[in-house]
Design a protein around this nucleic acid. Structure first.
Length: 312
DNA sequence: AAGACGAAAGTGGTTGA
DNA sequence: TCAACAACTTTCGTCTT
């Protein structure tokens, strides 16, 4: 893929130091930490140039293949009547049977896919997910339909489950709560179908990394870039101290962000942090306490407190 | 008065017999 | 299938700023 150029300025601080994180599909302002754009935009050409010596004509080699179209943009049909001329009666019958067969299959599966992919797009854009994730989710859903995994489950829940899985795979995790809000499916149900679909399709998903949540939380709390990267550092240390395993990743991410904000004098209340992370204050407190004890951050926090007193 | 802290009881999900 | 279990939540009283 081509290197992207961003000519935009950061709407927050006017800086031009924008950084495109390709994997996460986020554009982050390095000056103020604002997530400028969460949707991945590809300005590159989606066609290839085959005859470069024959001038600048940019010919498209067919539509780009995509899973977000119900037939992947490559529809075929068993031929039309006009193809029949000159056929014998027998093969003619076969021909009609084929058509009928294809028609039945396609109406069942394709109608479902059309509907489902529309829903998928809706939810994906609501959550501002990068295009690549949408693609991945669509691919999963298509596979799920083909293997009849949707039977007995609502189409919407499988869509939500696929999206959730795709997010995790691309390291842009959304919480089950967010997914639930966007899709209108119960959290429980999404979790269930998510597990079911990934198991049946043999998709492996690593436990999500807390630091993947940091940029998003940080952005909605309007924290500086330093605070954000400090939070990631803290998380890294926490991981080494084996404080992260078995815990909810959002809770840890929230706590790290809380401490980091405290140290950088950008204090947010536990309530505020808890809200954007979708956990309670209590959880933040517990994680926060652990972080302080295990990582010798107490000194840092105390320093900040002292500084405050001096100012007074 | 608001925020931080901690204890205690309750909830939903996982695990292992 | 059930009970034990860990993580997290809810609730509430107390302390701190």
């Amino acid at each position: 893929m081509k290197q992207q150029l961003y000519i935009k300025k950061c709407p927050e601080c006017g800086g031009i130091n924008l950084f495109w994180n390709k994997d996460k599909g986020e554009v982050i302002c390095k000056d103020c930490g604002l997530v400028v754009e969460e949707k991945m935009i590809d300005f590159g050409q989606e066609w290839r140039e085959f005859e470069s010596d024959s001038g600048p004509s940019k010919r498209r080699a067919g539509a780009p293949m995509t899973y977000t179209q119900f037939d992947q943009g490559l529809g075929t049909q068993v031929g039309r009547k006009s193809d029949l001329s000159g056929m014998k009666k027998k093969s003619r019958n076969k021909f009609f049977r084929l058509r009928k067969w294809q028609y039945r299959i396609s109406t069942a599966i394709e109608r479902n896919l059309k509907l489902a992919l529309a829903e998928l797009k809706r939810v994906a854009s609501y959550l501002k997910l990068p295009r690549s994730v949408e693609e991945e989710a669509a691919r999963m859903y298509t596979l799920a339909v083909q293997r009849g995994l949707v039977r007995g489950r609502s189409m919407e829940s499988v869509v939500a489950g696929s999206l959730y899985a795709a997010c995790r795979r691309h390291e842009v995790p959304r919480t089950l709560d967010e997914m639930s809000e966007a899709s209108g499916i119960e959290k429980k149900e999404i979790g269930r179908t998510y597990r079911f679909v990934t198991r049946e399709l043999g998709i492996k998903i690593l436990p999500s990394n807390p630091s993947d949540y940091v940029p998003r939380f940080s952005s909605s709390l309007k924290l500086s870039a330093e605070t954000q990267s400090k939070a990631v550092e803290i998380l890294e240390m926490a991981r080494k101290a084996e404080l992260t395993s078995g815990r909810g990743p959002t809770g840890i991410a929230a706590a790290a962000l809380y401490v980091s904000a405290l140290i950088h004098g950008e204090k947010r209340t536990q309530r505020e942090v808890a809200d954007v992370a979708g956990v309670t204050e209590v959880t933040i407190r517990n994680r926060y306490k652990e972080l302080l004890v295990e990582l010798d951050l107490e000194e840092d926090v105390k320093k900040v407190k002292k500084r405050k007193k001096k100012k007074k």
